[in-house]
């Protein structure tokens, strides 16, 4: 029998995989991939809660998250391409122009 806890633990696990990606990646494109994983992990948790509490609101929030993720990709990739045209690489270390 699969309970809500199963799904929530899976979502937490996927979120932490995304967290590892966010912390160890230096390439900005790979960082975007990791954020997509994090958003998907949250979507699983929303859908599971929606099923086990018998409430549709969770699914609707997942829809809005998908819309936000789609627009994030469009704008983020545009910025990434501009940055690559300027600097020739998308390394996170090259982003720091203000040496503090």
């Amino acid at each position: 029998m699969i309970t809500l806890t199963h799904y929530l633990v899976l979502a937490a696990l996927l979120f932490c995989i995304a967290l590892v990606g966010i912390m160890r990646r230096k390439n900005l494109l790979m960082l975007f991939f990791a954020t997509e994983i994090a958003l998907n992990a949250v979507n699983i948790a929303f859908a599971a809660i929606s099923k086990y509490y018998g409430d549709l609101t969770g699914q609707l929030f997942a829809f809005f998250i998908i819309a936000v993720a789609a627009s994030e990709v469009a704008v983020g990739l545009g910025l990434l391409i501009i940055w690559y045209k300027r600097r020739g690489n998308i390394d996170l270390d090259s982003l720091q122009s203000m040496k503090g």
Binding site: E36, I44, A47, A48, K51, Q59, F63, I66, A69
Partner: peptide, 21 residues
């Protein structure tokens, strides 16, 4: 991941997941 949505009776969300993502 869309398979989980189908398992959770969220058919429309699963379809949207495949199409959008």
């Amino acid at each position: 991941i869309s398979a989980f949505f189908f398992l959770l009776d969220a058919d429309f969300l699963g379809v949207v997941q495949i199409i959008v993502y």
